[in-house]
Amino acid sequence: MLEGKFEESSLMKKVVDAIKDSVKLCNFNCTEHGVTVQAVDDSRVLLISLLIGEASFEEYRCDRNITLGIDLESFNKIIKNGNSSDFLTLIAEDSPDNVLIIFEDKKKDRVSEYSLKLMDLDSDFLQIDDMEFDATITMPSSEFAKITRDLKTLSESLQIIVTKENVKFSSDGDFGTGNVVLKGFVDMDKPDESIKIDMARPINLTFGAKYIADIVKGTSLSESVTIKLADKSPALFEYKLPSGFLRFYLAPKFDE
């Protein structure tokens, strides 16, 4: 049996918001250590990997591994009904046909209970081994979201170029070009505002801007985002959770 209670429903709301435009159907795999999701978008270009660790829950119990096949659009309709500050509890039997979603207001005696039908989903799993990356950038997630949105208005591709001194985000479109250059710096007072650039080898990669626009929907989960890049390889975009992470792996574009 699964019983997981969040101190606030806001975390689950943000997670669903962050992934629902990339994937429609996915298995939530529940183990004693927490909840994981791996899912690939329909175009097979973007992969999400989610870990909501046991410590993200106020109370968590999962005796046997349980798979919840969830339609995220339906789940989102229910999850939006809770207030962000409500307790959120997910309950499922060992071989469940549905999952119970319970919201409890902390001040009033109001309990809202919903049941979501589960689906039997086939899922291919992609084996992602630990990769060696040539460059790692950590920056404020809101800044990355703004750069993505701004440059996406010019072109359907977004180029990321990393040199020793800086990282350049660049787009080249029909009516014009644009780029944003950031240098590494340390903000002592607000560490999350810092920009950190670690580069072993210079990087020049191009990605579909629409996929990065989906990735930055994770912005509300974390103050900062870490981008890991390797030549001619998928990039890793990571938003850290209080215990766990939401990672996006995005295949690049390049000439043969």
């Binding site: 690939v40 097979r44 270009v45 799993f125 992609l126 084996q127 591709s157 295949a251 574009k253 390049f254």
Partner: peptide, 14 residues
């Protein structure tokens, strides 16, 4: 032309 790669070109399906 520049081509969009698929993840399966990089990772093994299990």
């Amino acid at each position: 032309a520049i081509n969009q790669k698929k993840l399966i070109q990089f990772y093994v399906k299990t």
